[in-house]
Design a protein around this nucleic acid. Structure first.
Lengths: 352, 352
DNA sequence: CTCTGGTTCGGGTACGTACCCGTAAATATA
DNA sequence: TATATTTACGGGTACGTACCCGAACCAGAG
């Protein structure tokens, strides 16, 4: 701490190179109008002095505003999960607004691929300096980010990753391992043979997220050679009635189910069903720190929630663009969020 | 997001008040030399415009360096827990160094109250603008912080709290609830009557932290009316041999112990003992994300670790002083850290 | 030779705030 | 009334960088 190094500025560079400040400035921002010779001379001095621009002065002098676009699902009745990332994004924005950065949100419908495309086109027209997006629709997102790449607009993924793209970074969970943790918790107190149920409640059953999670979940059983059955159910209609109907059926068909794992935040729907049908003998685990889920955690119907810090994802996502565009910092390309375990007892202190 | 509000500066205030910028400046920093009348006029305008000073310009123009003192235990052979807060503090420092803030660390010995006093005196002589400290010794810390208070030096507590002091804020765990969570995890798969062991490994057995944790731990059993025994052992000598001797004795005296709860980070010492004596039938829970603990988590001897984000504590602690002294932000007086649950499966992604 | 156009560069002002220095007015002191 | 002291305020410069505006210079065309 407090290593006393003197900071040199453009003035010193100009002095040493026998040129004006303006010329140094031109080199730093590689604008035109500088001969190769002086350019080299100045660059050498910059390296020698390990010049670090003063962001304060830089942002103060530059009156231009940096605009960042945010492309995420809208908060629907279906799930208010996306409230959290948005909150984090807002927090980041207020923090960097004073440096002349603004963020413009674009919301798409998770049940409508076209809405994604429409908003993406709007962003491309908008001449933004950077983009933060949730690549929920794989093909559409790839197309969009390729357009960004060719326009040299940096972009960051949150919530789920698209490997091998030209993204600045990915900030989100390691989904496979998250499912793995879910399996561990689910089986932690199951003694002999188990009989567990995996439920996917979503219109889009082919969603990349769920596939990854379930893979991790099943791997745990394989790795630990746990004997027993894993039953699997897809529920495409997300209303309470449909969920109730499907669950009744499944629990009738398969007797002796001891535990249920829900692959997303709609675990509260299952909790509601278990509450009504008075099945408090079944352990229940699901995702995300939503109010409804917390309620069922409180009254014991949900045993554990797993959460990946959605607010932090939004915050960091926007900051990653700020750090790149304004500060010029190097960013870690993959930043996995922790796989947080939430129980009735520690939920009051959770940081989303 | 992006609510377009025009920012007004001192210049505009000066214009409206029919005074010079210098006078406005005097009012803002309530320096002397302004008549009550103009002072009021300017203050009214400041309120009306909801004036927010431009930190960039402010820190740029002010060449004075703000010095913060950090008073925490030194990293000893006994425990390298304090590495993490220090890391967080360093991270915060590099982040705010560009705004002319520096942090000077002072380390005391957890086994020597006098070393705390000595360093505290050094800090008082040093004319610092703010102090971040871990009040490990209650009486000594009270005396020190009172001196800070009378000198109007703001100070923040981390790791443990001293209620009713004039501290800026406390950033750390809710110890009672943390013990409560420990009990939950410990008993989660114990079916019938339990027989559990609580171990406190530390020279200072009267430490405020441990007392609080144990209280929470025991409350869980009371609240859930769990039948069974809680055995308690104090181990004052922290070397492996002593730990081994004490544990052998206790496990002989009390047969059928199913689980052990260690109230601090020295749980690895217990794990080592269990490993040697091949007692993998006993569940083990303890504190903190230390390398040694993680190793035992990996090979299954430790079931859960509880952790309170020590690095984050250090980071936030220093930032709280920065936010107060530089930004003039209001700070939450009590900021509880989450009670994180770490297992073999999610440890790779934990954020300390 | 002059004229044009491009290249290369420096002077100077601005960003919003901090603070030194000087001065006019008000008040106290002789 | 003359002088000293205090009070209240304004002018102006500096912080480090961005960028506009023009100037000097050079090459080639006429």
């Amino acid at each position: 701490m407090s290593n006393e190094t003197t900071f040199y500025g453009v003035k010193e560079i100009a002095r040493r190179a026998n040129v004006s400040i303006a010329t140094v400035d031109r080199v730093i921002h590689n604008r035109s109008g500088v001969s190769e010779k002086t350019k080299k001379k100045i660059n050498d001095i910059i390296k020698e002095l390990d010049y670090q621009p003063n962001i304060l002065a830089s942002r103060l002098a530059s009156r231009k505003i940096i605009s960042l676009a945010v492309l995420i699902p809208k908060v629907s009745e279906e799930t208010d999960f996306w409230e959290s990332p948005l909150k984090g994004i807002s927090r980041a924005e207020t923090e960097i607004k004073k440096y002349g950065v603004q963020a413009i949100p674009f919301f798409f419908d998770l049940n409508d691929r076209n809405s994604f495309n429409a908003k993406a086109d709007l962003i491309l027209e908008g001449n933004f300096h950077g983009v933060l997006l949730a690549p929920s629709f794989v093909e559409e997102a790839k197309q969009f980010t390729e357009a960004c790449y060719s326009r040299k607009i940096p972009f960051t993924f949150i919530d789920s990753d698209l490997p091998d793209q030209h993204n600045l970074c990915y900030i989100g969970p390691h989904l496979y391992q998250s499912g793995y943790v879910g399996a561990k918790l689910l089986t932690y107190r199951l003694k002999e043979r188990h009989k567990v149920l995996v439920i996917n409640i979503s219109r889009a059953t082919d969603n990349y997220n769920y596939v990854q999670i379930e893979e991790g979940f099943r791997s745990y059983f394989k790795d630990h050679k746990l004997p027993g059955d894993i039953i699997r159910v897809d529920i495409q209609d997300t209303d309470n009635l449909s969920v109730s109907r499907e669950l009744t059926k499944v629990l009738n068909d398969h007797e002796g189910i001891q535990a249920i794992f829900v692959t997303n935040s709609r675990v509260f729907a299952v909790a509601k069903f278990l509450e009504k049908s008075k099945r408090d003998d079944i352990s229940l685990i699901g995702y995300d720190f939503l109010k409804e889920n917390i309620n069922y955690l409180e009254n014991g119907l949900i045993d554990f929630l797993i959460c990946h810090k959605p607010e932090e994802q939004g915050y960091r996502g926007l900051m990653s663009l700020y750090e790149t565009l304004v500060l010029g910092t190097r960013i870690e390309k993959v930043q996995f969020m922790p796989i947080d375990i939430i129980t009735k007892e520690n939920q009051a202190f959770y940081m989303n």
